[in-house]
Amino acid sequence: MTVTATRRLRPRSRIRESVFERSAPYVYVAPFFLLFAVFGLFPMAFTFVISLFDWNPIGTKTFIGFENFTTLFSDPRFWNAAGNTLSIWIMSTVPQLIIALGLAHLLHFARLRFANFFRMSLLVPYITSVAATAIVFAQLFDTHYGLINWVLTLIGGSPVNWLAGQLSSQFVIAVMVIWRWSGYTTLLYLAGLQSIPKEMYEAASVDGASGWRQFTSITIPSLRPIIIFTIITSTIGGLQIFTEPLLVNSTGGLTCGAGRQCQTLTLYLYEQAFGDYKFGYGAAIGVALFIMVVVIAAINFALSTRMKGSRS
């Protein structure tokens, strides 16, 4: 269609040329938006539609309006999954960002030999497949033969049945997330740190500011845009956590254990839609999750921009 349009360019009037000149950028970005419409926008809209149906993928589908949502609000398993998701998110994101900030500070200022080696090795957990990570961590935290419990008993503690408890199983997942993402976030912070002019620190130390004072008064304010970015991305990622809870308790099926102790919202969605063949209900969970992510991301954004506004 557009190909024929270019052929018709022959009568070279200036007006026409400028029309095409102006439309060119839209054509350049069109591939992305086309793909986004097909693979992003359409599935999203379609999920909303499915959530209004009682839909068995291989059976019947009937329109039931908002019934899936009313069931959802009185479903204790949904609230359990929502609570688990939030607690895993907090347990993983807060330490992860703090560790990353500390590590970045260290890598930037400490006089290290092979600094590039240390910087690059931070990415190793990130490029390791989640499945491999989950299997290794599941073995580390195994009740009977795991390394962690072995060390615990060695120093006089008693073994913990990590995956059986609500908080302990979520802790295992949080550790996996921290292990995987800290290095990536560190590199982002490191890039930010390198853009801060050295003179600022020199001037501060001439003025007699301590290392801590420099960290709070120069480093953090300068990194604020990057910190906001990482908070928002880790919120979106953290609320959608799926592979870790699915694989860490491999014998727990789609519930992450007998008591649904570490089942997250995405895992509950998957269980309902693909385990129990309730597509409509699964889609309703997806919509609820979507709203949750939007709300929390908005709160995050408002808080962090406000922080920025009041300080600068």
Partner: peptide, 21 residues
Amino acid sequence: RSRTRLAAAAVVTTAIVASLV
């Protein structure tokens, strides 16, 4: 130059659409 670029972009777009179909 812009016209050839435009044509190239158009070809890419149609190719993607074609592959999707």
